[in-house]
Structures are given as C-alpha cells and as structure tokens.
Write a protein that binds this DNA or RNA. Structure first.
Lengths: 207, 207
DNA sequence: TCCGTAAAATGAATTGACTTAAGTTTGTAG
DNA sequence: CTACAAACTTAAGTCAATTCATTTTACGGA
C-alpha cells in the first residue's frame, strides 16, 4: 500500500512548499521567516528542516518547479520554430525571460541565484545547476534543429552554441534582476543586439 | 594637516580589511566570524560595522582591490595585443581568469558573487557591478583596437562585443568556482571553444 | 490488541550577524 | 585652558536561521 506515513510526508512537504511560496511572494525572501512559514503550514519550525535543508532550499525548490515548466513549454517552440533562424533563437530566449517573471519577483530571483551560487554542492545548488544545464542544452537543440534546416552553419558545435546563447541570456537576466528599476524592454533590446552579434560573429573573413 | 582622526580612521580601516583578508583566506568565508575579525584587528565587533556595512562588504572590498589590479594589468595587454585577433581576446580573458585565483579561493569568489547578487543596491553590490562593467568595457576596448587594425569586422559594435565576450568568461568562471573539483584547464578549454564560436558566428551567410 | 523500533515532530537552545544606547576621544571655539 | 559637539568605540542587546535532545506517531510482528 501507499502507506499513511508516505502520504503524510508527501502532503506535508507540499504544504510547507505552498506556505513558503505564499509568504515569499507576499513579503519577499528576506522578510519571510522560517517561523512564519512553519506557522502557515501548521507545523513547528524544526519540521521545516526535515523536508528542506535551508530557507534557500525552499526558494530553489520553487524556482525548480518553474524551471521545469519553462523547459516543457520551450519544447513546443523547438518543435515548430519560426522560419528565420535569428527570430527562432530570439523567440526561445525571450520566452525564458517572460516566463521567469510570471511567478517570481526580481528579489526572489536574486536570492535564488545567490543561494545556488554560494551553496553549489547542496542538493538544491545542484538542482539549480542542473536546470541551467538543461535549458542551455535546449537552446543547443534548437541550434541543431536550425542547422538541419540549413539556416545555421553546420560547422559549428550546436552544444557550444547553446551554451554561449544561454550564457548571454542568463547574464543579462542577472543584470536585469539586480536592478529593480530596469524595465524588461531594455533587457530584451540588449538581448536582441547580442544575439544578432553571436549570429554574425566578429570575424573579418568575409569571403 | 591630515588630522589625527583621519589618519586613525584610515589606519583602522586598513587593519580591519587586513584582518578579514587573513582570516577569510585561512578559514574561508563561512567559518570566519565578525568577532574573530574584530579580535584580529584589535577592535570591538561593533567597530567593524563603522567601516563596512556587512560581512559581505568586507569580502567585496577585497575583491574590488583585486579587480582594480586586474584592470590595470589588462591595459598593458590592450596596449600591445598579440597579432592574431582570436589570440588577443583569448589572452585577455585568460589573464582575467588566472589573476582571479591568485588571491582568492573558489569559496571566496562564490560568496563574493552571491553577496553582490543578493544585495545589488548596497554600496558593495554597486561596486561589484561597476567592476564587471569596467572589465566588460575593457574587453570592448580591445575589440575596438582590433577593429582599427582591420582584424575584426568594423560593422560590429565593439561595446556589444565586449559585453558578450565578458559574459562568456564570467559565466564560465561562475561554473568553475561552483565546482570545487573542476580544474582550470577545463575552464580554459571551454573558454577557447566559445570565444572561437563568437568569432566565427552562427550565421550561414558565407559569401 | 499490545509492544518495540524507527521515522518524524517538536520547541528550546545555540549561534552569529547586525543594532543600539551609552561612554570616550578628538577637534574647536571662546 | 575649558567646555562643547561631533565622531568613534564599545559591549550588551536583538533577531532569525539552524541544530538537537526529547517526545510523539506510524508500522510490523507477536
């Protein structure tokens, strides 16, 4: 049987995560205490630590949910990409950005990234890194797909291209969330400029 | 006159920073307490906060010193860059990487970046962002210099190119410091691959 | 049904960053 | 030389994340 204990455990984990999501979104990461999350989930503070390694772990778990969602949705863009190669890549990367802000504020993203960075070997740090890896690979997939169509030079390594493009979007996103006042339009403009540059390349060997 | 107070203040700031540098390097960021730093500098814990906003601020101040050093040294590479354009860019970026690990361990870099990310509006967060900006601009300068020599397509915006190249090296560096076991050779290999790709571009408009 | 074991929950204790109120020292004006 | 104000220092707090010893609960076997 599923076992009462198993079900209770899964349920409690869900409850705690839901409580954290609610309070993080309402009050921000810094202004939400573990006590408050525990109270919202109707457990003791110590219990939270039976399910999550740290406060940061709670946040990363939320981000990971979102990340999975983005990746799944990204597949549909790859399945049927726009005619133009630059447009296709830009569409996918813009999609990542737009999606990222639906559920999480800039403050939450800052703290999620900061936690992932300072605790890279913790369970959640690894999870965050794995997520980045998957998204970069997805961009690489798109590049491979466009190569198959003959729209991108077949000589380039699609994985490397995916890495570079994802690094570009990720770096710009970091700057974006670091500046509370920066509008998303500015981020997109910079992204477009840089993606175009990656397509055209710096080389002077034209011809 | 310089004023006793001024001199004492500057001296104390130096003492505290030196104490922090010593202990951070010896014990790591997480295992060094403000108390210990204060004791090493022979002041009270509270005094540390008259000179630095937070523990993270102390670390960023150390990083900033290094950053200035790197930037200054980078100038000499720009002043007399290698013949080949790819080599020139690669040399500058590799120089950044090599220099970064002379004074600071991976753990310190992780924490410095994490702090800068989670507190972007604090004095030290802004300082860190400014440093990144300056280095990216320096890469842009090199690109402009290579354009002047006719080794890089004059049509590309040198600032954008600098941004992209710096984002690449910075992203790879983040991955590098996140993995305690990752050797620097691997980082450099990835960097070389990606820089080459940025030079060649993804486009299929050859001819 | 009753019992022993191990998982899970609990909240009090610990820890360490940061704050603050009170006491000192330095510079200055009379 | 003296008194006052501003700037510094300090040590005793506050606060919140995390840990831990203890209690409670689920589960399987007698």
């Amino acid at each position: 049987m599923a076992g009462l204990r198993e079900r209770q455990k899964a349920g409690r984990r869900r409850d705690i995560l839901a409580a954290a999501a609610k309070l993080f979104r309402r009050d921000g990461f810094a202004d939400t205490s573990i006590e408050a999350i525990a109270a919202e989930a109707e457990v003791a503070a110590g219990t939270v630590y039976n399910y999550f390694q740290s406060k940061g772990d709670l946040l990363i778990s939320l981000v990971a949910l979102d990340g999975e969602e983005v990746r799944a949705a990204g597949k549909s863009i790859i399945a049927n990409p726009p005619k133009d190669a630059v447009t296709a890549v830009h569409r996918l990367l813009t999609f990542y950005i737009d999606h990222s802000l639906i559920h999480l504020s800039k403050e939450l993203w800052r703290n999620a990234m900061a936690n992932a960075l300072s605790q890279p070997s913790s369970e959640f740090g690894l999870a965050y890194a794995a997520l980045d890896r998957k998204l970069a690979d997805q961009v690489g997939e798109l590049v491979a797909c466009l190569q198959a169509r003959g729209q991108i030079d077949g000589g380039v390594d699609s994985k490397t291209a995916g890495d570079v493009l994802f690094e570009v979007v990720n770096s710009l996103f970091q700057v974006f969330v670091a500046r509370e006042e920066m509008p998303i339009a500015l981020l997109k403009k910079a992204l477009a400029r840089q993606v175009r540059l990656v397509f055209s390349g710096l080389g002077n060997s034209e011809g």
